[in-house]
């Protein structure tokens, strides 16, 4: 479904991603794990078109997307739930959700999608008229996910969905991600919470200093000596 082929990415003159390749198959949950600053978010931003690879190619369902304008990816069914939620903090919960369904088919299905999101997150329904900036951290993450779901995506990319959340909420968010995947949406997950990420993923890539150093089935990586000592602390 998604194929990243040998991308290099620079911030100004500094190269942060070196020849990274990976693929995500339909209906999979794939996670990219790595330490803070390894380049995980950079990869997602590059797939979304917020950054451009200086070398390499990115395909989504066979179509080259690395030169498309960022706003057009949502039409293809690829949506990015960015790090730190990035809500429209001065808009209401409901307006934020509507912003996820601005175009094409998603716009026509807007009301139905809203009901679906409210069913998944009853808390958001209670707070639909509230200003997004006044929500708690967990509610904000729910809203960020809900807003992305409004676009009726085929594939969702999550950037650190557990960031800054209490453990009980982390578990809840991961449950939601699993549920979204079970309903047929492909998931690419970037996480520092390696244990949680590996527990929900089918396959994983380990990113260190902008390079993929390890890859394989998630179950296998949990037992990998390097992963154990570097990321799981056992």
């Amino acid at each position: 479904m998604l194929e990243v082929k040998g991308i290099d990415v620079f911030y100004g003159d500094v190269q942060v991603i070196w020849d990274v390749s990976f693929r995500v198959e339909e209906a999979e949950v794939v996670t990219i794990i790595g330490a803070n600053g390894a380049g995980k978010s950079t990869i997602l931003k590059t797939i979304s078109g917020l950054l451009r690879p200086s070398r390499g190619e990115i395909f989504f369902n066979g179509e080259a997307i690395h030169r498309l304008p960022p706003y057009s990816l949502i039409d293809l069914g690829l949506v990015h739930v960015p790090e730190a939620r990035r809500l429209f903090v001065e808009m209401t919960v409901e307006e934020n959700l509507e912003m996820g369904a601005l175009r094409g088919e998603a716009k026509r299905q807007r009301e139905r999608s809203k009901e679906m999101v409210f069913e998944l997150f009853p808390r958001l329904k209670e707070r639909r008229r509230q200003i997004a900036g006044t929500l708690s951290g967990g509610e904000q993450q729910m809203l960020a996910i809900g807003r992305a779901l409004m676009s009726r995506p085929k594939m969702m990319m999550f950037d650190e969905p557990s960031l800054g959340l209490a453990p009980i909420l982390v578990a809840e968010i991961f449950n939601i991600i699993e549920r979204i995947n079970q309903e047929g949406t492909t998931v690419l997950l970037v996480e520092q919470n390696v244990k949680m990420a590996l527990s929900v993923a089918n396959r994983a890539y380990v990113l260190e200093n902008g390079r993929v150093v390890l890859e394989g089935p998630a179950q296998q990586l949990i037992d990998n000596e390097h992963v154990k000592t570097a990321y799981l602390g056992v």
Binding site: Y71, S72, L87, F88, V89, M99, S151
Partner: peptide
């Protein structure tokens, strides 16, 4: 929708792009 997209762009340009707003 266009008006809301303008407000969204003012509040968070990148997030607006990710939601399909032609900034």
């Amino acid at each position: 929708d266009t008006g809301k997209s303008i407000r969204a762009t003012a509040q968070d340009r990148d997030a607006a792009l990710l939601m399909g707003v032609n900034v």
